[in-house]
Amino acid sequence: MHYVYIIYSNSFDRYYVGMTKDISVRLNSHNAKKVKSTKAFVPWVVKYIEEFETRIDARKREKYLKSAAGRRWRRNNMGN
């Protein structure tokens, strides 16, 4: 399985959208400052997860969530 996730940094009021095969390992990487784009904003918590059969489907959803339409979806469905 592949997962698309949205994590949130409460300290900086910031969201990050990503894709992985293992949510807990990936979250640990973010919080251990091993991900360049998120290391300045630790700590992160998982706010949303979607599961997909294929990497291709997960990647399509990740790209959507990173688009302007995806940000609108997040505001409408997650409150921010």
Results as ranks from 00 to 15, higher is better:
Glu50Gly: 02
Ser24Cys: 04
Glu53Cys: 00
Lys66Tyr: 05
Pro43Glu: 13
Ala69Cys: 05
Lys47Leu: 04
Asn76Ala: 11
Ala32Asp: 10
Lys34Arg: 11
Arg26Leu: 08
Glu62Val: 01
Val35Cys: 12
Arg74Val: 15
Lys47Met: 05
Ala68Val: 13
Gly70Glu: 03
Glu50Gln: 08
Val35Gly: 05
Ile49Leu: 06
Thr54Arg: 05
Ser67Asn: 11
Arg55Gln: 10
Phe41His: 15
Lys21Ile: 13
Phe41Cys: 06
Ser67Thr: 01
Tyr64Lys: 01
Arg59Met: 09
Ala32Gln: 13
Arg26Phe: 05
Arg71Gln: 14
Val35Ser: 14
Ser29Lys: 09
Ala68Trp: 00
Asn77Thr: 03
Ile23His: 01
Thr20Lys: 04
Glu50His: 01
Lys47Ala: 06
Glu50Asp: 11
Arg71Ile: 15
Arg72Phe: 03
Val25Trp: 00
Lys21Ala: 07
Asn31Tyr: 06
Phe41Met: 11
Thr38Lys: 07
Ile56Asp: 04
Ala68Cys: 06
Met19Phe: 00
Ile23Glu: 14
Ser67Glu: 08
Arg26Met: 09
Val42Asp: 05
Arg61Val: 00
Val46Phe: 01
Lys63Val: 10
Ser67Arg: 11
Val42Ser: 08
Gly70Pro: 13
Leu65Arg: 07
Lys33Ser: 10
Glu62Ile: 02
Asn28Ser: 13
Ile49Phe: 00
Ile56Asn: 03
Arg61Ile: 04
Lys34Met: 08
Thr54Gly: 04
Glu51Asp: 07
Ala68Phe: 01
Pro43Leu: 11
Gly70His: 07
Asn76Gly: 03
Arg59Asn: 12
Val25Tyr: 01
Glu62Pro: 00
Ala69Trp: 04
Trp73Cys: 02
Ser29His: 08
Glu62Asn: 07
Ser24Met: 11
Val35Leu: 13
Ile56Cys: 00
Asn77Gly: 04
Ala58Tyr: 02
Arg26Ile: 08
Tyr48Val: 11
Val45Glu: 14
Tyr64Thr: 01
Lys47Asp: 02
Gly70Lys: 06
Lys39Tyr: 09
Val42Cys: 09
Val35Thr: 13
Ile49Gln: 13
Thr38Ser: 15
Asn76Glu: 14
Arg61Leu: 02
Arg75Asn: 11
Asp22Ala: 06
Lys63Thr: 12
Arg55Asn: 09
Phe52Glu: 09
Arg59Val: 00
Thr20Tyr: 09
Pro43Ala: 06
Val42Gln: 03
Lys60Gln: 07
Arg71Lys: 12
Lys33Thr: 04
Arg26Tyr: 10
Arg26Asp: 13
Arg71Leu: 05
Leu65Met: 03
Arg72Leu: 14
Thr38Ala: 15
Lys63Ser: 12
Lys36Asp: 08
Met19Lys: 14
Arg75Ser: 10
Ile23Phe: 06
Trp73His: 10
Tyr64His: 10
Ala68Ile: 13
Lys34Ser: 03
Tyr48Phe: 14
Lys34Phe: 00
Asn28Val: 02
Leu27Thr: 04
Gly70Phe: 07
Ser37Leu: 12
Lys66Pro: 10
Asn31Trp: 05
Leu65Val: 04
Arg59Ala: 04
Asn31Leu: 09
Arg26Ala: 03
Asp22Gln: 11
Val46Glu: 12
Trp44Thr: 08
Ile49Val: 15
Lys63Gly: 06
Ser37Asn: 13
Val35Asp: 14
Arg71Ser: 12
Lys36Tyr: 12
Lys47Ser: 06
Ile23Gln: 07
Gly70Asn: 06
Met19Val: 12
Val25Asp: 12
Ile56Gly: 00
Tyr64Asn: 03
Asn77Phe: 05
Lys36Ala: 12
Pro43Cys: 11
